[in-house]
């Protein structure tokens, strides 16, 4: 018999706690495959966030540190400065990175910190039960914006890639999605590019991955994928926002 597909050895055998239809599992897989394909898994240190991915250290088959809410880029900075030969990445959600951790992500980018950030944006607080995030779409109802997010007073989506791309010392900034197979393959290419930047000491790299939250969006897994396509893509255009090597 010929093996045509197997679980990446970048992932452990621990069963994931993610809800059915959530795309965190896919994103974990893409990151793990990337680390194995680049042959850096054994010298990688992951930094887990607070949020749905809080147990990321149980799933990635590498050394890891659990950070306080929003502080993953600072923790990653400490690790990377001590061991520049380690490959250090943070895995953060939109509450963690785009709300409580805005100072840490902006300044890690400003320093050109040679780390990679995997930023998972599902436009809502998942772990705490569906509250409004800075990334929630205008009009999107959540448990803390029951009438839908209002542009005035509650604001409009914070676009992290666009913001960080203006920072001089960043090396690679891209927004991708995993809601269909072609997009998933594109996400994998972006992750590989981002980690390659770090391996080559080019500086700060970030990949924003649009993700689903069927549980808190109140949608089926299939409808959630459709919701990404129809509602998130217009608000969060996919693409490469910064590439110091000039690629797109």
């Amino acid at each position: 018999m010929k093996i045509v597909y197997e679980k990446s050895r970048g992932l452990t055998d621990v069963p994931m706690h993610y809800c059915p239809g959530c795309t965190h599992g896919i994103i974990h897989k893409l990151v793990a495959e990337t680390l194995v394909e680049l042959d850096v898994l054994g010298r990688t240190v992951a930094v887990a966030p607070v949020g749905c991915a809080v147990f990321a250290y149980e799933y990635f088959n590498c050394d890891a540190q659990e950070a306080a809410h929003g502080r993953a880029p600072a923790v990653a900075t400490g690790i990377k400065r001590v061991h520049p030969d380690n490959i250090v990445f943070t895995y953060q959600g939109d509450g963690d990175l785009a709300s409580i951790g805005t100072a840490e992500i902006v300044h890690a980018a400003m320093r050109g910190e040679n780390i990679t950030v995997v930023f998972v944006n599902n436009a809502i607080y998942g772990m705490t039960g569906g509250q409004m995030a800075p990334t929630t779409l205008v009009g999107q109802p959540t448990t803390t914006s029951p009438l839908g997010r209002s542009r005035l007073g509650q604001g409009a989506p914070l676009r992290v890639c666009e913001m960080l791309a203006t920072i001089e010392a960043t090396a690679y900034i891209a927004r991708v999605s995993v809601h269909n197979i072609p997009r998933l393959n594109g996400a994998k290419r972006a992750l590989k590019k981002a980690f390659q930047m770090q391996i080559e000491n080019k500086g700060f790299s970030l990949v924003e991955v649009l993700s689903t939250c069927p549980t808190n969006w109140g949608l089926s897994p299939v409808d959630s994928l459709r919701w990404v396509e129809q509602n998130m893509l217009p608000a969060y255009p996919l693409g490469v926002y910064k590439d110091i090597e000039g690629g797109t």
Partner: peptide, 17 residues
Amino acid sequence: AESEVAAINMVYGAAGA
């Protein structure tokens, strides 16, 4: 660091390393 909040978390990362 950008703040004492970030500084102590950098300490956490470096100590953990």
